[in-house]
Design a protein around this nucleic acid. Structure first.
Length: 562
RNA sequence: GGGCGUGUGGCCUAGUCUGGAUAUGGCGACAGCCUCCUAAGCUGUAGAACGGGGGUUCGAAUCCCCCUACGCCCGCCA
């Protein structure tokens, strides 16, 4: 079963094509403002090609095209198409009731995509700035899943680089009693103190740098003890990071370590292959790849590998395991991203990753830095979100302690995700404590609240089976149609959001959908609506499933009450 | 110096790729709505010619050029 909204669009294209005898790619359909219809076809570009007055074309189309379930009208140089409201409402209700929370899912693609996100260096706990990456990545992954892809969510663990070497040096040379107290017991919070102190000492004492280079050298030469130390340290921190992410419903499917690429020799192989490319060169014994006057070094003169080489090896490894690759990276990696794409192309590797870049989150105007310790940890932010949600609930409801805790967790974490995902990735975000957690207006609780209201109606109605008779789904009123129309748009919104890799548009849609239900809720009594009851229950149920599906796509939980 | 990105009502934000019909929504402000399914809700009012300037076009927030502010990058760090 398809979706009315998508079928209707296909029908327009098909019929326009036939009437004008033109090819499909000449037809550009847009979504106009509500009053005009569901789709509009501006005829300006067609006018140029067909050498006709756009108004005439619009008129011709409006008289010659007849939609199966809808109207066609010309309005100046535009043709407006409107789906029959009752048809749309009925079909969408049936679709929701059948698919339940998988409403919106698109046909299976039998293609696999690896979504790489977060991949933060395991040198300390995630901070709010770093949290933007996993939230974007996980939302994209969920969007791809719902649109029929097989998705693997992967974290690339840099367990061997210089940053980790500094941390390793710290754990080998520093005494716990010289460090400040850890904020929490988690390993990431505990170990970051060594990293920060080591960095501080490194600035003051150059001889430490030699120690660190020596550590890197022996590790890459295959010193088992040191390698184990690297891996263990990284792993401990990774556990802490994963734990933080879990609270946000972010679960990775796999972790690929950089060390594994050194150990299996693939990095060495990459260095050899790159050296054979015409864009490569040597400077002072060090190997580089050059593109548009930008030299990227891939190996040091002492032969050890650099991050770019290892990342190429990683992408080759990934390319063998998926049909599509998607990376989420901070904007500081833009040049690196282009480098990776360019080298992979030169090496004839496919697929080449598509990269979504996001700009940074500042903290009240200041840079967030793990090294300098100027940041709000994600863990603290989540705790604050939880507490704030708790306060809000207490203000308006009596609930048991257990419930209170689980509800405020769902609301708080939803707010964290939503407030970050609703802004387009390339736009900078300045984190200000007072505004960071909105619980009103365009916020996660707003979405959850609408879902809860629907739930509440259904609960009061009882777990009765919904027996829809042939006469129930008709005589739809305006507000009912408006809501169902909004619901019906989900598959289209999802399709477009995936096509553009723009998770924030999903958030935008979620807000529109919730707002529509809140209006319906005000204007149309459900439980006291006599003969319209079955129809309205069906509408509320449809909304509950659709909203549930949208929230699932955004990784936001659904409290039963709030 | 070069490259990439961002600049939309007092504040935040959609739309920019794929140029079109009155520029999206929220916060805040003001005025209203709980004898009726949870007011974390709803309704209304005021408020932006889209950083500045030029250009292309029948038509520009959207495309091109110049300028400007801010962020990021240009390392044998990652």
């Amino acid at each position: 079963m398809g979706y009315v909204i998508l079928d209707f669009q296909d029908e327009i294209i098909d019929k326009t094509k036939k009437v004008l005898d033109i090819s499909e790619d000449m037809i550009e359909i847009e979504v106009p403002s509500e009053e005009r219809g569901d789709y509009a076809l501006p005829c300006y570009s067609l006018a140029r090609v067909l050498k006709k007055d756009p108004k005439k074309i619009a008129e011709e189309l409006s008289t010659k095209i007849e939609m199966d379930f809808g109207t066609v009208e010309s309005s100046g140089p535009y043709v407006n198409f409107k789906i029959d409201g009752s048809h749309l409402a009925r079909e969408t209700i049936l679709s929701c009731l059948e698919k339940e929370e998988s409403f919106g899912e698109l046909s299976p693609k039998s293609e696999k995509i690896i979504v790489e996100h977060t991949s933060a260096n395991p040198n300390g706990p995630l901070h709010v700035g770093r949290a933007r990456n996993p939230i974007i990545g996980d939302t994209l992954a969920r969007m791809y899943e719902k649109s029929g892809y097989e998705v693997e969510k992967q974290y690339y663990v840099n367990d061997i680089g210089r940053q980790i070497a500094i941390l390793v040096w710290g754990t080998l040379n520093l005494d716990e009693k010289d460090l400040p107290t850890a904020e929490r017991k988690k390993a990431d919070h505990n170990l970051v103190r060594y990293y920060q102190m080591a960095n501080k000492l490194l600035e003051e004492d150059e001889s430490i740098e030699e120690d660190i280079q020596e550590i890197i050298r022996s590790m890459e030469k295959g010193d088992e003890d040191i390698l184990q130390h690297f891996k263990n340290t990284a792993q401990k921190i990774m556990k802490g990071i994963a734990k933080s992410l879990e609270r946000l419903e972010i679960n990775l499917d796999s972790y690929k370590t950089e060390s594994s690429l050194i150990v299996d020799g693939s990095v060495e192989e990459v260095i050899k292959k790159v050296s054979e490319l015409k864009n490569s060169g040597e400077e002072d014994g060090a190997l580089y790849y050059e593109k548009e006057d930008n030299k990227t070094f891939v190996a040091r003169k002492n032969g050890t590998s650099l991050y770019p080489a290892r990342d190429i090896a990683y992408h080759i490894w990934k390319a063998e395991r998926a049909d599509h690759l998607l990376n989420v990276l901070g904007e500081d990696h833009k040049l690196h991203g282009e480098f990776v794409q360019s080298v992979l192309k030169d090496l004839d590797v496919s697929p080449i990753p598509h990269i979504v870049f996001h700009s940074f989150v500042t903290f009240e105007g200041q840079e967030m830095s793990t090294r300098k310790g100027t940041y709000v940890t994600l863990d603290n932010f989540m705790d604050t979100a939880h507490e704030k949600a708790k306060e809000e609930i207490k203000k308006r409801k009596e609930v048991s302690t257990d419930e209170l805790d689980s509800i405020s967790e769902k609301i708080g974490m939803g707010a964290v995700r939503y407030n970050i995902i609703k802004v387009q990735p390339q736009k900078p975000i300045d984190f200000v404590w007072d505004d960071a957690l909105d619980f009103e207006g365009n916020s996660a609780p707003f979405l959850q609240y609408s879902h809860t209201r629907a739930n509440s109606i259904l609960r009061k109605w009882g777990d009765n089976r919904l027996d829809i008779g042939s006469s129930d789904l008709q005589d739809f009123e305006d507000g009912e149609i408006t809501l169902m129309k909004r619901i019906s748009e989900f598959p289209r919104e999802l399709r477009d959001a995936v096509e553009n890799n723009s998770p924030h548009t999903m958030a935008k849609y979620a807000h529109k959908l919730a707002a529509e239900f809140n209006q319906f809720y005000r204007d149309y009594p459900v439980l006291h609506s006599e003969e319209k009851k079955i129809k309205r229950i069906a509408i509320v149920k449809s909304f509950k499933f659709a909203m549930g599906s949208v929230l699932q796509t955004l990784g936001i939980q659904k409290p039963k009450k709030m």
